[in-house]
Nucleic acid binder design. Structure first.
Lengths: 69, 69
DNA sequence: ATCCCTAATGCAATAAACTGCACTTTGTTC
DNA sequence: GAACAAAGTGCAGTTTATTGCATTAGGGAT
């Protein structure tokens, strides 16, 4: 599964588990409603800053690790 | 440590451990030399696509996970 | 049916990432 | 010292993310 889909799914599941709307998430994160909706639908190519803003609010952790071959 | 720094450090360490230059990494990943250099210095706000291109070549895994409180 | 809330979408404007080129700086080797 | 390679930087152009606004679609409740 590529990272676009992973991000998309994680955001939607996490937002719904917190029972907040896209609009509320947009307010909390400082990311526009438009962009939130696009990312949740798997569209677009969000910047690292946008990803971090959303991840912070949603309690999602982004981690870098060396691949095990 | 924020994700910008983590990305910056991971990229540089990983690239140097592979003993390739910024220019070579740029060729392999399809990301311009300019952008590679900026990210390694911690500047800029790379897009998800750019991050993925570099992570692929460097064997770095990007993972999303729920934060443990 | 209407009303309300949420999500999705078209369009246009702005901000910013990405790029290439030329140049400078730094470090290393001879 | 000179010569070379790698990294850093200024600038301008192109591409694209981001944004706001208006609109549409869908579901749920009255």
């Amino acid at each position: 599964m590529d990272l676009h889909q992973e991000l998309q799914n994680a955001l939607r599941r996490r937002r719904e588990s917190l029972a907040i709307t896209q609009a509320h998430l947009a307010d909390l994160s400082g990311v526009s409603l438009r962009t939130v909706a696009e990312i949740e639908r798997g569209n677009g190519n969000p910047s690292l800053m946008t990803i971090c803003k959303l991840a912070d609010v949603l309690g999602v952790d982004l981690r870098l690790m060396i691949k095990k071959p």
